[in-house]
């Protein structure tokens, strides 16, 4: 699993780590009972404060996405395949798009229409 974070992103780093784990679940690169990298490993890889990684793991555990096996590490739970993560991820994307639309003076309906339009063009382009 490849986790990428971006300091120019307005989301706090621990949220970005959580979203990356969710993304892995949605894409299928992370499956139930897969181990997450250790806090130390991930912190060193991302050059991130270990407390930030620990915070992300704690929040994921609270949400039931991962569980901790004492002395062995952090693992993906069985329950995290049921579409909840997919929905959470989609909502996050939608929220960011809405904020961006609002900043540009565009309403939600207008945005949804525009997304449909663009998606249609893409599908046509693909065929």
């Amino acid at each position: 699993m490849l986790l990428a974070i971006n300091t120019a992103d307005a989301r706090p780093i621990y949220v970005q780590i959580m979203d990356e784990v969710r993304r892995g679940l949605v894409l299928g690169t992370l499956k139930p009972e897969d181990a997450l990298p250790s806090v130390r490993q991930l912190a060193a890889d991302l050059r991130v404060n270990p407390n930030t990684v620990a915070q992300a793991y704690r929040e994921l555990e609270r949400e039931g996405v991962v569980y901790v096996r004492r002395g062995q590490g952090t693992f993906i739970t069985d329950a995290s395949t049921n579409g909840t993560e997919r929905r959470a991820l989609a909502r996050g994307v939608a929220e960011r798009a809405l904020v961006d639309a609002h900043r540009n003076g565009i309403g939600a309906d207008e945005l949804v229409d525009a997304i449909r339009e663009v998606a249609d063009t893409h599908t046509k382009g693909d065929s």
Binding site: T7, I13, V39, L46, V48, N49, N51
Partner: peptide
Amino acid sequence: GLLVEHITETPTTVLISTHLVHEVDRLAD
């Protein structure tokens, strides 16, 4: 990277002075 490894292995308080904030962005709390 070494600094992160260091503070994960050894409980350490770190006080950094810098004017290159983006470099320590991921570390600072």
